[in-house]
Design a protein around this nucleic acid. Structure first.
Lengths: 230, 230
DNA sequence: TTGGTTCGTCACAAGGTCGTCACCTTCGCG
DNA sequence: CGCGAAGGTGACGACCTTGTGACGAACCAA
């Protein structure tokens, strides 16, 4: 189905990834170091690299950056794996050019779904960096947002909130889910905080604010139109 | 909030789990053997199974595998409980498709957080969450409903009621069964409340309201045609 | 330090939701 | 047909949820 390179030093995680990815019909190669990872990536040009943030011989972020810049690995998709609490978040991950970002411990299902999603974007030619959604354009890497071509200034938190909603569009997100995905692990905030930031986000998005929909008694949903067909 | 099956032979752990999960608003059933666990899982279709690795009548890994393969328990989430030192089985647990694992002795807080996280993925993770039933289309993830392509706005409670009826379609649900499945655990309401909400649901579903059928003296049934029997 | 920005919380108001009740309609049965 | 019971219906009030503006703490750059 796709060629996937796993760069991860913990052998049990390696095994889990190998077993499940192969079961999903992928062609899997395992490496435990950044050096081997880069070599394999250049030689084999995998479709996707699953990349641990913490590696024995260097950080995964460096490798990620290299993969992005190296001509030999142009077009390779990168999904970062990070342990909870590591000083990186979604936004930083995206700045490095990662296509997605998964926090350990992760559910196997979730991982497979994300991998599928990234691969799907590859095959449909959708860019990993910027996405157009209705009148809204988002550039993850540059951290910029436009509504009808007009740039909108968002704070880091608002941007992250928008990304999270956008990435799970057409799915209701409970306030708790948003809190755990957008806010820091140790953040001690109430669910009402989400409301306030949703309000500010809508405000800044202007006309595109209607994409952020309230599902009363449940949470928020990002969708194009009220009657959109799922 | 969710139906949780605990398969664990140590009674003190059982008690801790039961107490805390119930306090979190979950509906909890306890079993101590793999056999009972499987039976309950098939009958009750819990949202989540908390599964001890070491059971008196067989390993939890076997049960996990069975739960994954059995059509009657499709979609059930599994969280494995393992004693320290059973590290090897951690990998096996993931390979078998467990959604998470927790090492004993665990902090109650951590357990509850993990359970929450896994349950949240249930409602947001799965793809292909829309089902077509006659003229009715339901998207669980987005919390949206269409009748003949026209979106219908349901409240959280109405939506849950519809899902519950739909999931047990062609089978009569007594008012009491609906109350315990749809309403909060501590809800103190009369069975007539169900009637009222069925009425509101039918009203909003319009033409598709005929799917919600009254079985006089018993309860309600969700079916395509009035004479359909399961 | 100072000034500006960002963010979390609060209180309030508007409106939505839900449980109940009284009354009406329908059904099953003789 | 008439009766009683079960279920449908409409209305209402209590409660809950969310949007909103304001405020102060924390942070940061100059």
């Amino acid at each position: 189905m796709a060629r996937i390179l796993v760069v991860e030093d913990e052998t049990d995680i390696q095994e889990i990834l190998e077993y499940n990815l192969k079961r999903d019909g992928h062609d899997v190669v395992l490496t435990g170091t950044a050096r081997d990872g880069l070599r394999h990536a250049r030689e084999r040009r995998p479709d996707l690299v699953l990349l641990d943030l913490m590696l024995p011989d260097g950080s995964g972020t460096e490798l990620c950056k290299t993969l992005r810049q190296d001509a030999a690995t142009r077009g390779v998709r990168v999904v970062m794996l990070t342990a909870k609490g590591e000083e990186i978040d979604r936004v930083i991950g995206f700045e490095l050019g990662a296509d997605d970002y998964i926090v350990k411990p992760f559910s196997v299902r979730e991982l497979l779904l994300r991998v599928q999603a990234v691969l799907r974007r590859v095959s449909t030619g959708e860019s990993g960096e910027t996405t157009q959604f209705g009148t809204l354009r988002v550039d993850r890497g540059a951290h910029r947002v436009w509504v009808n071509g007009q740039e909108v200034e968002l704070t880091a938190l608002e941007f992250k909130l928008l990304l999270t909603l956008h990435d799970r569009r057409n799915r209701v997100q409970t306030r708790d889910a948003l809190l755990s995905d957008v806010w820091k692990i140790d953040a001690d905030v109430t669910t009402r905080t989400v409301d306030t930031h949703v309000k500010r986000l809508r405000e800044k998005l202007g006309a595109a604010g209607i994409y952020v929909q309230t599902v009363r008694g449940v949470g928020y949903r990002f969708a194009e139109r009220p009657d959109e067909v799922a």
